[in-house]
């Protein structure tokens, strides 16, 4: 019962934050609202007993990505475009309404939260719950699955993060370009020399 009340309050706040994100035109305020949205989602995950996910959401969603968006905003010098009210919102509104109704219709088939007969809980989950502690000696099943049973997947995730870092280094890693070191003119110069 208390969970239900907390969920309703948190979901109301989520909806309010989402509407506020849509309505604000100030980019700084939008980024801060994104952070609040992430923190509210993290709290929802805590209520659903998904502590590891909540941890990640709070650290990455509310923490690092807010900082990265703020640094990006500092680079782009806070361009606030005045929104034009000339366009007609009816077609987008219809698309959003129909998609939303389809999604709500889809939730009718979703098994109840924590339902032991749900397909997700009857496949390998039972095996992990029974065997994770005797086989790996790790009380936290999430860590046992993440690092041991699904070690291959996690290796892939680490490779993805590494690739993201390499990509950012390739795009932004060099010294900020001064006017006379424009890559295009440099290329042209090289062509001229050859």
């Amino acid at each position: 019962m208390i969970d239900l009340i907390i969920n309703i309050i948190l979901l109301t706040f989520l909806a309010i934050t989402a509407i506020a994100i849509i309505r604000t035109t100030n980019l700084f305020a939008t980024i801060m609202l994104f952070g609040i949205f992430s923190l509210l989602s993290a709290t929802l995950f805590v209520v659903m007993d998904a502590l590891d996910v909540a941890f990640t959401e709070a650290a990455v969603g509310a923490g690092i990505s807010t900082i990265l968006m703020l640094t990006t905003l500092a680079l782009t010098k806070n361009h606030n475009e005045k929104r034009s009210h000339a366009h007609r919102p009816w077609l987008p509104l219809a698309v959003v309404t129909i998609t939303g109704m389809a999604l709500v219709y889809g939730t009718l088939d979703i098994p109840g939260f924590g339902d032991p007969a749900a397909p997700a809980n009857t496949h390998v989950a039972q095996y992990y719950i029974n065997n994770a502690l005797p086989e790996t000696g790790v009380p936290n099943i999430v860590t046992a699955v993440l690092a041991s049973y699904r070690g291959f997947d996690t290796l892939g995730e680490v490779a993805v993060i590494f690739t993201a870092g390499v990509a950012v280094l390739l795009l932004l890693g060099g010294k900020p370009s001064s006017p006379n070191s424009n890559p295009r003119t440099n290329k042209k110069r090289e062509e001229d020399e050859t």
Binding site: I64, I67, L68, T71, T72, A74, L75, I161, F162, A164, G165, V168, L169, L171, L172, G173, P176
Partner: peptide
């Protein structure tokens, strides 16, 4: 390391 690389790359541009 990657989080710091990304942050330094973004913040260093300024």
């Amino acid at each position: 390391a990657v989080m710091l690389i990304i942050f330094f790359a973004f913040a260093g541009r300024g």
